[in-house]
Design a protein around this nucleic acid. Structure first.
Lengths: 225, 225
DNA sequence: TTGAAACTTTCTGGAATCTTAAAGGATAAT
DNA sequence: ATTATCCTTTAAGATTCCAGAAAGTTTCAA
């Protein structure tokens, strides 16, 4: 799960980043209008935290542009208490939620979690496929109702697969969403291979009815076997 | 479990009612301010779903009155996206949760379930799990009916675990709920480790059938062993 | 068929995380 | 004020995890 935090005040930015990372999200940041725009339109984020008041431009402009692309349902607005109009405008532009400064970091992560759940889980508490069931909140995976233990990366990878079940998973997509900043060089996907290997082993041993198939030259696909 | 749904739009009201009934709840409804007030003050509900925008009055007024009675912890607010201030006010008035329209019905029932669990737990005099029984009021813990003595923090930690049994306990969550304001920096959870160690030792020595399992990089889980 | 690229598997060292023990402060009771 | 109890901090050791490397296998294209 990759999250972009757009916020110009360094201290706050750092706190937000840290607390999100503690929740195992992949976090990227932008602290001014231009770099924010750049990132937003180049990369794909699962959730965007957007401060309205930015140097060189308003976050609302970013939102407007996102709106044209039809990708605003994962935006959470961060705004100062007195800019009520901005807040309302933001929600009219399709933002999913808002937070008023100052806020508790716990509240922030809760909102992020809620947005991600709404958009990926549609209200359910688990993602199911075949006899595999994954509970994001409890970081628990069961196969035929029997719990199996996965470590962090294995869990994140499987989750990404399940969210994108039946879809083709590119290695760059996987790297971006599960690893984050690894991608810049990305001439070598050994770190992915390693996790895939282990995940396959565990799924197989537990008798999963799904398998991770390699698509040569492209990536992977999760299929019922 | 009896639930009251206060909502003026007939279609939505019917859908909510149906999906709750499917979960075997007893459901009653009200579609305007007056009949809502009437029901709320005559009967006792385990959970109330409250739409803020109502004909003839605001749901907030209902909430205010409930607040005087000290019974708002089982209220879930349903609000339209643009009535932001209402939402905030609602939570300030002690509502337990809120949902923004439009929402998935699965999410609604999940929230209801959560509220009910929170509140029914308070109702009982002990929280039990395996052969462990904790009495919050008297701050007493027994294992196989045999009392064991815990210190303050040990007790609080165990209670937090028991309230959230089967759920994943994050260290930040634990810090927040048991320690309070410690969390602000919280790059170091040694104070938690210490309590966990002692608690484990005492549970083990007393022959508890449950154990605190570490989840690497995330937190803990209380499981039957 | 053959070589190159893509993919799989196994191993390993170091980093991050967790556990435990012990020492020093804080707090509450007497 | 003194003592006993409890809590936090410190520090050292154990465990778990993961990127990277290396070696082996499969797939593709010429």
């Amino acid at each position: 799960m990759k999250i972009l935090v757009i916020e110009d005040e360094p201290g706050l930015l750092k706190s937000i980043e840290d607390s999100l990372k503690k929740e195992h999200y992949v976090v990227e940041t932008a602290s001014d209008y231009l770099s924010a725009v750049e990132k937003v339109f180049v990369y794909d984020y699962d959730c965007i935290l957007l401060d309205i008041m930015l140097p060189n431009g308003s976050g609302l402009q970013i939102l407007e542009q996102l709106n044209e692309k039809g990708k605003t349902e994962n935006v959470i607005i961060i705004s100062a208490k007195d800019s009520l109009d901005d807040k309302i405008k933001g929600l009219e532009l399709g933002a999913d939620d808002y937070l008023t400064k100052p806020f508790h970091l716990a509240e922030l992560t809760a909102r992020v979690k809620a947005v991600l759940r709404r958009n990926t889980l549609e209200g359910k508490s688990t993602i199911d496929y075949g006899n595999v069931s994954l509970d994001p909140d409890n970081r628990k995976v069961t196969i035929n109702k029997e719990p199996i233990t996965l470590n962090r990366k294995e869990f994140d990878v499987l989750k990404y697969f399940l969210i994108n079940k039946n879809r083709l998973i590119t290695r760059t997509g996987l790297a971006e969403h599960v690893w984050g900043d690894h991608i810049d060089q990305a001439d070598n996907f050994d770190f992915i291979y390693y996790q895939i290997t282990n995940l396959r082993k565990k799924l197989d041993e537990a008798g999963a009815s799904v398998e991770i198939k390699a698509v040569y030259g492209v990536g992977y696909k999760l299929e019922k076997s």
